[in-house]
Design a protein around this nucleic acid. Structure first.
Lengths: 240, 240
DNA sequence: AACTTGTCAAGTGTTGAACAACATTTTGGT
DNA sequence: ACCAAAATGTTGTTCAACACTTGACAAGTT
């Protein structure tokens, strides 16, 4: 595995940078990506031997990667029974959205003097979202959507909060990708996101907060719907 | 190591419960405890070979434990350079206290109809705090203090928030135990905590929030002081 | 038939040893 | 005194083996 990395870059600088990440972290990244892309669906078991063999790393390394993802909430570990991709329950969705409200809405007010940098980022993310939706790349769209909200959180200027928030939306993302078909109206978010930017720039924080709250409600309702529908589907398939 | 556990309990019930925790988790628990007790001070290096030998576990197992604590923020990993107990900087303290305010004050308002159970817990924790301070057990006092605030957070009824909060105060605790001597006035918290309980019970949420905010400010100032003093001390000792 | 009791395979938990990769220190030369 | 190259000690990673659980199925009992 390390030799593969070596091959990609011969330049000393790059090699150093790439190499600073341990293999375990890289493996965690790969698995995270596959989970968030919906490739590994909730409930999928990840037997250590076969997975480590498939990825070309040792069992121990895979274990470290799994430990990371388990602490992130993406994988579930049942002792002596193996790991599997976590399920997102309605309760989880509700819990996470209560947190999003608790964190994102104050973020708007924290943007009293909004950072130009963050605002610029947000605007470019809206553009990117538009492009991605146009290209009908739904998985990527979900990612960009969440990046937009992460920028919002950055107004708090708090690293711990930011990484916690990213962990949260990581879990949500796992639920979002359950639908391979377009979820209701993915393009509908564009004007909302754009208006959030403008209201922030104009200092209309109250209006912005209201709009955001409403946006979050919508988003939660949509995800609830997806999750409950998926739960039914699973129930039927399992025969419970 | 596992066989040792077996010996302790022959009863099936107990054995099941004990054995559900992997050795790695147990080791993480031990290390966490020693760090939070101030036994392992910030900056202390933890060489894998010696530590694993001392604890009687393999290097791989210790590594898993270290991975857990690193993700909790208690240990710092520098790749190829080993792990050490994290330092708490003034910036960290400030960041964490901003989060505490953001989370605890809304918790008061979330206690509009306060759970009897939580309130009971809080009161008994105040009593315990009193007893512990009387016994001059400062390390334990810090722990009980933080347990009190954790109960406050429980009004949010949000598991993810709770574990995030516990991670946060875990980091603070590491700073708190830097002083082996009594920090200014450890008994002074008793009436404050007690009044917070009473105001909550009486539904005087606004007053309670104000008091809590003030309490947090005091607490932050005290910790800032400790940390900066310790940083000076370290600077002198290191000769920088 | 329903219930308990072996037995077995498959998987995880843990270990120890070995080697590779890296940071730091020491060495050796100038 | 300075700098590059080698030695050192540590972590990162792999491998192979064993101990221990679990789940499922077969065998036996009531």
């Amino acid at each position: 595995m390390p030799s593969l990395i070596r091959k990609i870059s011969d330049y000393r600088m790059e090699r150093l940078q790439v190499h600073r990440v341990s293999v375990a972290d890289q493996v965690a990244g790969i698995l995270r990506q596959r989970i968030l892309a919906g490739e590994l669906r909730p409930g999928t078991a990840l037997p250590e031997v076969s997975v480590s063999a498939a990825l070309g790393v040792s069992r121990n390394t895979l274990r470290e990667a799994v430990r990371i993802l388990a602490l992130e909430g993406l994988l579930k570990r049942d002792i002596h029974r193996g790991v599997s991709v976590s399920h997102l329950s309605i309760a989880d969705v509700e819990e996470i959205y209560r947190l999003r409200r608790m964190l994102e809405i104050p973020a708007v007010y924290a943007a009293r003097k909004p950072s130009v940098e963050i605002l610029r980022q947000m605007r470019s993310l809206v553009d990117e979202y538009e492009a991605v939706v146009h290209a009908r790349n739904w998985v990527r769209a979900v990612g960009v959507d969440f990046q937009f909200h992460t920028q919002l959180i950055r107004f708090h200027r708090n690293n711990r909060l930011e990484s916690f928030y990213q962990k949260l939306i990581g879990e949500l993302r796992m639920g979002m990708v359950l639908v391979d078909r377009v979820h209701d109206d993915p393009g509908g978010l564009i004007p909302v996101h754009r208006e959030i930017c403008e209201l922030l720039a104009a200092g209309e924080l109250r209006k912005c907060a209201v709009l955001l709250a409403q946006h979050l409600d919508d988003s939660e309702a949509r995800l609830r719907d997806i999750v409950s529908r998926y739960a039914d589907l699973r129930r039927v398939r399992t025969g419970t």
